[in-house]
Nucleic acid binder design. Sequence first.
RNA 1: GCGCCCGUAGCUCAGUGGAUAGAGCAGCGGAUUUCUAAUCCGCUGGUCGUUGGUUCGAUCCCAACCGGGCGUGCCA
Length: 587
Amino acid sequence: MFRAVLTDRLQAAFTAAGIAAPEGFSPAVVIASDTRYGDYQSNAAMVLAKQMKTNPRALAEQIKAALETVCADLCEKITVDGPGFLNFTLGAPALAQRLAFIIRDAHAGVPQAARPKRVVVDFSAPNIAKPMHVGHIRSTFIGDSLARVARFLGHEVITDNHVGDWGTQFGMIIHGWKTRLDQEALKKDAIHELVRVYKTVNAEAKADDAVLEVCKAELVKLQQGDAENLGIWKECVRLTLEQLEKVYTALDIRFDHYLGESFYNDALAPLVEDMLARGIATESEGAVCVFSDGSLKPEDDPFLIKEKDSWKAAPCIIRKSDGGFLYATTDLATIDYRVREWRADEIWYVVGAPQQLHFRQVFAAAQRRGVGTEMTHIAFGSILGPDGKMFKTRSGETVGLLEVIEESIERAREAVDSRDQGHSAEEKEEIARIIGTAAVKYAELSQNRLTDYKFSWDKMLSLQGNTAPYLLNAYVRTRSIFRKLEGGTVDLAGAKLTITEPAERALALKLSQFAETVHDILADHRPNLLANYLFELANTYHSFYEACPVLKAEGAARATRLALCEGASRVLKAGLGLLGIQTTERM
RNA sequence: GCGCCCGUAGCUCAGUGGAUAGAGCAGCGGAUUUCUAAUCCGCUGGUCGUUGGUUCGAUCCCAACCGGGCGUGCCA
């Protein structure tokens, strides 16, 4: 990765030029904002000149002189432009050398993390007896992608699906199970039937307090360990997980664990007692709460909220006045488990932005209990409906996640059918499945996770533009060349590579930047950086493909172009794989 | 009331201290004796919500305001 190498060289140039950089100053090299300025650029001279109160251009010239010696093997040109930018243009030999490395390296040139960590990724978390809907798209795909990226970089990743299997909804479901369950329907589609039962009872309970009381009684019996209710609950969990497993398989997502909320039931009471005993939590209005301990500035304290001119307590409740436990209690017990049993260095929570305060409180409470593990809330915005309003789980009318995927596959199938590439029926089916699934995943992952976005069938399922099919097509084009090659394969290991054409150069440079990109993803937990990169790579490859015939070329040009195709092929496959997207050899 | 997030081209969205703010879609015009045209090349399109401030330099940082969303003691 040239960015890191150039940064080191810049540091060396400072020393060579006898420039004493102030404490804490580290020069930064970034990919050039515009190709006409070169390949990489640095504003180090301007930043430093400001601190040293000297002329930025003069300082830049001084650094440049040193750089030219230090970077002789990498750069063919280093210039000082504008107010004092240092611009680097890489030499063709350095790019060719890098290309040779990318096509033989198992990680396509991406270095492993300097300090591997054990990371628990908490994502997806659907509820039992409810179908996965579009609202689960963000957590599920972002979480899966981040887990893949972390693994790729050499971290030890544990994925844990913290399913909602212990909510108050079970009072109604159990009552419904006992009185109006349709066994046939349950066999056909368990979740659908459980939802129907829940909705029916819920409507009745709203209209009739007597029904509501019965449901509450069923819930209490469940919580007290009543054998029959426990049996019904277990069956609901089993049936739902069975169906969820099918969805995850279709999405090519797997979890190491499915430790739902109920897994921590026995830990909740002791946890609260412990926190009371240690003075971390106190009783207030009958509930057990965690209040501010005054160790933080009020504006940074998650247990305080401003009201007029004073600060008011915003407690985190861990036990209700009726003795029941909450989300926060379970989360604290879950943290204990992950730290104790898994020795997690980090825990990532891929959960929507509205729960920001909740996590700030839970993390702060855990820290007060002595938890040193780094916990990160990887928040994301909402998916909005076509009207621009919250895409909420309105009673009834939710779009199921599986239906979205199926619709997408159906549209992909139509596109595949209309093109007639001589594929067999099975091939077409497989291609449609891969493209359809990829389209939905890419639509999500190419989005900045923090911003809200509009759910649109047309955009999500479009096979044109900045979409998965565009990227897959680039990959397919790399593969078709190797299929057409006489003998089927070619040994590029010792080939002499010479980069001459602008399109070759642009592609070689872009390929080398895969390393930078993958490295950057985890800095802010943003898979869309990778999606953006892959789109640019596909674009660069398509341009190269139009400009530079591969099989018709001869000698070193042919070997170089084959190497570029091989590099593009590897990086596209690896990159899409990190987004959880499978590739296809033909389409 | 207070807190957090958001406001960028007709639409959907990237970019977040740097050099003339980008892309896709839509619109217009080209390219196919070809390694997959699900492609490429070009054109059109912007007071980066408003007003101030900091800076050599602000879409980005700070303040205020306008508009939208979410959250704010016993749901998850």
